Computed example of a mutant assay.
Amino acid sequence: MGSPADLVDVLDLVVRHEIVLPLVDRESPLVEAATAHRYPESGAAFGKVVLRP
C-alpha cells in the first residue's frame, strides 16, 4: 500500500481517466480457488485471476 499522498495521486489519475483498467487473464468459480491460485504461481498468467461465486 502507498501513502495518503499516493492515494490522492491515484484518485487524480482516475478522475482524469488516465488509469488503465486491470487486465483479467482468467475467471474461475470460487469452488476452484485452489486451482486458480496455482495458475499465476506457474508463471502462465498475464493479468489478474478473478474468482466468481
Rank of each mutant, 00 (worst) to 15 (best):
V10L: 15
L21Y: 11
E32A: 14
A33S: 15
L30C: 08
E32Y: 03
V15M: 02
L11S: 08
A34P: 01
G2Y: 08
A44C: 03
P29K: 02
P40T: 00
D25A: 07
G43Y: 04
G43K: 04
E32M: 09
V31F: 08
D25Y: 03
L7E: 08
R16I: 05
L23K: 13
S42M: 00
V24W: 08
S28C: 10
R52S: 14
S42K: 01
R16P: 00
V49A: 03
L23T: 15
K48A: 08
F46T: 14
M1N: 08
A45F: 01
P4N: 11
M1K: 10
P22W: 04
R16S: 13
D9C: 06
L21W: 06
V10R: 09
P4A: 11
A36F: 05
V10H: 08
R26S: 09
E27N: 07
L51Q: 05
T35P: 01
L30M: 15
P22A: 09
E41M: 12
A33Q: 09
D12P: 00
V10T: 11
P53H: 02
S28N: 02
V50Q: 06
A5P: 00
A5E: 13
V50E: 04
A34K: 11
M1P: 06
E41S: 09
L13Q: 14
R38L: 14
L23F: 10
P29L: 05
V50Y: 05
V20R: 12
G2C: 10
V15Y: 07
A5T: 10
S42D: 04
D6M: 06
Y39R: 05
A45R: 00
D9G: 11
A45S: 15
D25M: 00
V8C: 08
D9W: 07
A45D: 02
D25W: 01
G43M: 05
H17S: 12
G47H: 04
V20L: 10
P53I: 02
H37I: 04
V50F: 04
V49C: 03
V10D: 05
F46L: 12
L11I: 13
R26G: 01
R52N: 10
P22M: 06
V24C: 11
V20K: 09
R52H: 14
V50L: 15
E41K: 11
T35W: 06
S28H: 07
P40E: 02
E18F: 01
L13M: 10
V49S: 00
Y39V: 02
S3Y: 11
V31M: 06
G43A: 07
M1T: 12
L21Q: 13
D9E: 13
L11D: 08
P4D: 12
P22F: 02
S3I: 07
R26W: 00
R52T: 15
Y39W: 15
A34G: 05
R38G: 09
E27P: 00
G47L: 02
F46W: 11
S3Q: 13
R26C: 00
T35E: 15
A44Y: 02
L51N: 07
P4H: 09
T35A: 15
V50D: 07
E27L: 08
V10C: 07
L21V: 07
H17R: 14
R52E: 14
L13P: 01
V50W: 06
S3L: 14
K48C: 06
D9V: 04
M1R: 12
L30F: 15
D12Y: 06
L51F: 06
V50A: 04
R38F: 07
H17G: 09
V14N: 01
L30Y: 12
S42L: 01
A36S: 14
K48F: 04
L23M: 13
L23Q: 14
P40Q: 03
